[in-house]
Design a protein around this nucleic acid. Structure first.
Lengths: 209, 209, 209, 209
DNA sequence: GATGAATGAGAATTCATTCAT
DNA sequence: AATGAATGAATTCTCATTCAT
């Protein structure tokens, strides 16, 4: 089963077609779920014929892959943009910036993100796990440069725990508790989870607030 | 679309048939995923005819619902069994018991659990979110009885944060980092995340370890 | 690609279904050719649903295979029936019996036979070449028992030449010169080709006719 | 459905394009078979656009027709070239020349020849049967000029029998027994079949060999 | 109650052909 | 003339569901 795009659109017209197809795929995937996402329907929503769809994507899977690729790159791009130059920032600020960036990244297209995450194991969307891997490495790099912040000696496990925790809280909040996100309460709580885990912002710190 | 079982099996033989069907559904679901789980195949694996399957379950969805129901009840049952009489236990012990119980519950059938979790939004398996709701209430009840443990005044949010965090760490570990589970390292780390978030086990506490 | 039947029909009803499907396949194949033989059309002609067709034959190819199998067995059966006890017959009679049997076999279903022969290399219908192989062996066995009849020392090549010649003349006559078949002229000519090649029925023999 | 070329290429460039298309068609036909010979693929292999292809050939069938036409003409051309001035040659030499010429004609492009022969009835390629008709006429003309050679009074039938026999033996040998062709054994055998059928080269002739 | 044959709508995919650029 | 993007009917095959036996 091919999962790589069939050909690169060269003309402006075909570029627009490919964009329309990817956008339609995302919309249909969100609305109907993977099982009910039919290529004919995607084509119809995109306003092109099935034939055109298959001219650029050799299979339904390739379509999903391309959407995941595009979404993952948008998210990682936003993260990378925000996370520069935190090396010297105080840890409270670094953590808050990371969490804010993560939330923004999740808000790019929350429903699409969720659908794609569901498919990670079902279809094998490595693109999506790479977001997490990138985040884990980011955290690991930061913690490695500040050994004193780490309560546990196991750097890798701690990084994974932090990434997983932040990711899960944001992901679930986006889906189940959007009100917590909009008023900023959640950001505070996630910061608290992270900083306290790192030994910062203990009762003493909090009291001084 | 009906999603409730068609009739209650009264005779012993019927009970065995239903059990075989549910077990077969779980196995096929794990092996092939929801999309490729066909009722004909389930019937064959269960050793009954499709006709018999439809005698007890009016649709494919009803089948999945019943499996989710059974699995959720097993998990909640195990949790309920373990969590009795923690009201007076010291917080460290309560947290550890909770986390241990959660891990055990996740290890009942990790792959089935994961498949079902994937389907929560796709098919609308409220049974699975009820596990989380039950856990959240459990936490909320415990924290409500010990207001001094809470660093945040928002009891509901804190409970949700804790449940989500513990659930995510265990779930992802079961799938991605099984080695962290088997040697007990993860239990320690999750305890640390929870207790520090609750203001217990700060640096000072840890140092004394 | 599976080419073997999916399941054996056990009940009388399904046996009739399978028969209807095979017969319809043969008719559509003859009428429309392989490329235009669609499974939906076969099902319609057979008076069953596509689903039923696919219950017994996993692919279009499997369908053709089964038809070829059935046809080849009918032909070989007829040959075997006719060709017994020629060991002691005079060569003229043996040759004529063989040719007559071959003609009868070709007349079972000439158009189907032709379509299937066309597909031998295209689809790989070994069943059909096996008819030729069986015929070649028959000839080889007969010639081996009468070394004096053979003008060439190379038994295998001579057998292949004879089988190919007889087969081609009958096959083409059935399709292009049916009138030669009906009045028996062709049988005489094919006998002449064979017997003269074998050194029998030279001018002298003929003159005495 | 049009089957005649759309326009005659007058310019040199057009001629080259048409040639490239025909050659590509032949190659794809041999490699993939008729059903999988797509016009898009032919165009790609020919190095032109589909649009250009359809400028010269109004349909897929027209493409195949043109290829058959070209191939048949090449074969008939080679035959005609070789067969001149056999009127006075001894029969043994005439037969051998004919068979040699036929073999050479079959070796021009054996796989293409076979693919086209398969399509004769499927698509109706009269061009290919015309090769046989030409050969039959050639034989008939020769035999008519030498009535004494004929064992049968029916000239037409005898010619058809000879043409069919020689054609089949060569055709099948090219496909199934190429080793018989390369070492010349087959030529001898085919000569034997023909000459003995014609009453020449009886035992007596052979003995003197 | 049980069986499993039958159904047919619907999904993925291909490819001959057209036509705007 | 040439290009190649676009079309969409047609094809193969699946599977949830029904119902005669």
């Amino acid at each position: 089963m091919h999962t790589t795009p069939r050909k690169q659109p060269t003309q402006a017209r075909s570029k627009a077609t490919v964009d329309a197809i990817l956008e339609a795929t995302a919309r249909v995937l969100v609305a109907d779920g993977y099982a009910k996402t039919s290529t004919n329907r995607v084509a119809k929503v995109a306003g092109v014929s099935v034939g055109s769809l298959y001219q650029y994507f050799p299979s339904k899977e390739a379509l999903i892959y391309a959407v995941a690729e595009r979404h993952a790159q948008t998210m990682v791009g936003l993260l990378a943009e925000t996370m520069t130059d935190l090396a010297d920032a105080p840890i409270e600020q670094a953590v808050r910036t990371y969490i804010d960036a993560m939330i923004q990244a999740h808000l790019i297209d929350p429903e699409l993100h969720h659908r794609l995450m569901q498919l990670v194991f079902q279809v094998g969307l490595s693109q999506m796990t790479e977001i997490d891997d990138a985040a884990t490495e980011l955290i690991e790099g930061y913690l490695a440069s500040r050994p004193e912040t780490l309560a546990t000696p196991d750097l890798k496990t701690a990084s994974w725990v932090l990434m997983t925790t932040v990711e899960a809280l944001i992901h679930m909040a986006v889906l189940q508790r959007p009100e917590l996100l909009s008023d900023g309460r959640l950001t505070d709580e996630i910061c608290a989870v992270v900083l306290r885990y790192l030994g910062v912002d203990c009762r003493s710190a909090r009291r001084g607030k």
